[in-house]
């Protein structure tokens, strides 16, 4: 899917994107291009990227190329999706224990669009954490336990 969405494959490129993306929600998909669930998610991202072009900038990040980010965001399952706004990490309460990232694929395009809109509006109102509008049924729940926390 990297021919449909811009791809980042170094820590520097990710840094640069996080620091320079302004006033839109930055979506970073950490994963691998050949993974089947990543492909599902990439399909949803690619199809919605044009509609969301005024609200979100979507980038694909190869998780093997950025061990620093993998370690920082504690990415144990791919795909994991992380959101930023103006260089700030946006947290989302999905109803799961982890608010820092979305693990797995969205069920529908509309779910992703709704989530981006909620994050965008929340960030515009100065919120650092927003509540996910997605039906809890459609959020895949995985066993994520960070050691020692």
């Amino acid at each position: 899917m990297s021919f449909l969405l811009p791809k980042l494959s170094s820590k520097r490129a990710v840094d640069h994107v996080i620091k320079t993306t302004a006033e839109v929600v930055l979506v970073l998909r950490f994963g691998r291009d050949e993974d089947s669930v990543c492909l599902q998610l990439d399909d949803i991202l690619a199809k919605t990227s044009h509609d969301l072009s005024k609200m979100a900038a979507i980038y694909l990040v190869d998780v093997d190329e950025v061990p620093v980010y993998r370690q920082y965001f504690d990415i144990t399952y791919i795909p994991s999706t992380v959101f930023f706004f103006n260089g700030q990490h946006m947290k989302v309460d999905y109803g799961s224990p982890d608010h820092t990232k979305f693990v797995g694929s969205f069920k529908t395009k509309q779910d992703f669009i709704d989530l981006i809109e909620v994050i965008y509006r929340g960030a515009m109102r100065g919120k650092l954490i927003v509540r996910s509008p997605i039906d809890p049924k459609n959020i895949p729940k995985y066993d994520l336990l960070y050691k020692g926390v």
Partner: peptide, 22 residues
Amino acid sequence: MAGAPPLTFIGQQVASDKGNVH
């Protein structure tokens, strides 16, 4: 979640010296 597609596990990201987002 029953019926969810299995995700790829890429290993525990535990580095004792450096913290993470949590």
